[in-house]
Every structure is written in C-alpha cells, then in structure tokens.
Computed example of a mutant assay.
Amino acid sequence: MALLDPVHAVLSEYHRRYDMRQVEIRIDLLRPIFEDMGYVDKIYWERFFFKSKYIIAQIKTYLQDMGPYKGVGSYARIQFSENLNYCWTRFAICKEMYHCILDAQPGSRITNTGDLLTLSEYLTDDLLSELADEADKFAPFETEKLAEIMAIETLIPIELRRHLADALDGGLVTPHQIALRYRIPEEYVGISMSAGYFSAVIRGRDGKLVDLS
C-alpha cells in the first residue's frame, strides 16, 4: 500500500461522482465519501469558540444509537475556530476528516496553530521524499503531518495544479491567485508547488493519478 493511497481513493471517487475539474473541491461533497471510506458512519462539523487562540480545530468521535433497526453506530464531530476564514475552514475540516480514515480507533485530537505549516521544514530536509520510500519513518509524526499532506493533495490535487508550475515560475500567475482559485490557505501554495514536493507526492502515490479524461 502506497503512503498516499487514501488520497487517490478519495479523489477517484470524488471525480467519479462530481468531476474534480470543477474547482473548488467542495468539502460538503467530500463528506459522504469520507463517511463511506472511514470508520465513522456520520461526520458533523460546527463553528466553535475556543478559549485558546492557538486551537484551530478538533475532532472527537462517539458511539450513538442510530435509531430503530440500525443499532449502534459512530459519528465524528469536527469543531473549527470561529476565527478561521473560508479557506482555512475548508483546510481544517478536510484535514480532520482524514483522521476518520487514518486513525485506527475512535478518539480525540486537537490541532494547534503550531502544528501547522511546519511541513515546509520537513520538506526542506527532504524528509517527505524519504517517507515516500519508507512509510514507517512517518511514525514520529503519527498521523498529523500525513493528514496535513492529504488535505493539501485533496483540495489542490496534483492532477490539477501541475500544469501551473511553469506559469508560476514565469510570473504569469501568483500564489495568491492560485489560492483564490482553489480556495486554500495561500501559505500552502508554495509548499505544494515546490519541485521536491511534486516528486515526493508522485512517489507517495506510487505514480497513480486520477484520469481526468
């Protein structure tokens, strides 16, 4: 199993249902896919006031009675900071939904501002390239960084953004314009468009990309 197989599975199903060329990639349409592929039956999210300004999102999973004849099921509740803008809200929810696939069992996770965007430090150390070759090296990061990478690869898929590399290098398009187009935080555009990241993601997906034809 390739490191980023869940991304390929989610995007393939999204494209089959909705056509991923119609950007932005919508999180409300992603939700039923995660419910089908993950370990929870239902996913809910809500805006929330956190006492700490450093918390941007959290996910908790529960068991509940699903009603007559359905027995007991499970659901995930994602709460995201009321201070997040539209792009950051989309990213935070997508990242937390990946925990419904990645985490081995129900639990609770909190995402702090300090946990995010350090991904660029790992990329400059070529760590992601190593992880694409040997998945068990990802263990020190548990699933937090993997969920972050998967959220990037879902909301601005390599299938769609790779044709923008030359335009970005040539100054024909700016990171801000790309962020607006795909509705992701601009901070992640530079990460996702770097040459080293491109090659690492291709290897992490074992060369499998969604056929957009």
Rank of each mutant, 00 (worst) to 15 (best):
Y197W: 15
S213A: 11
D36W: 01
M37F: 14
L128N: 05
D169L: 12
A132D: 03
V10P: 02
F138V: 15
S12A: 15
L102W: 06
H163M: 10
D166H: 07
L164G: 03
V189M: 09
S213Y: 10
I55L: 08
L160K: 08
K95D: 07
Y14F: 08
L128C: 10
S192D: 13
F141W: 11
E159V: 02
L127S: 10
L180Q: 14
A147Y: 04
Y197A: 13
G71F: 11
D41Y: 02
K60L: 08
A76E: 03
T89A: 11
A76M: 05
D36L: 03
A104S: 13
H15S: 05
V40Y: 04
L84I: 14
E96K: 03
L4N: 01
M66E: 13
S192L: 11
I191D: 02
R205I: 12
L212T: 09
W45G: 02
L4R: 01
D136Q: 12
E144D: 12
I93D: 03
S213N: 15
R77L: 15
P140E: 00
T174C: 07
A165V: 12
I93V: 15
K145H: 08
F48M: 12
I178R: 05
K42V: 12
A135R: 14
A2P: 15
I158G: 07
M193C: 09
L102I: 09
F80M: 10
I178F: 07
Y44A: 12
L146H: 00
D211R: 13
V40P: 08
P157G: 07
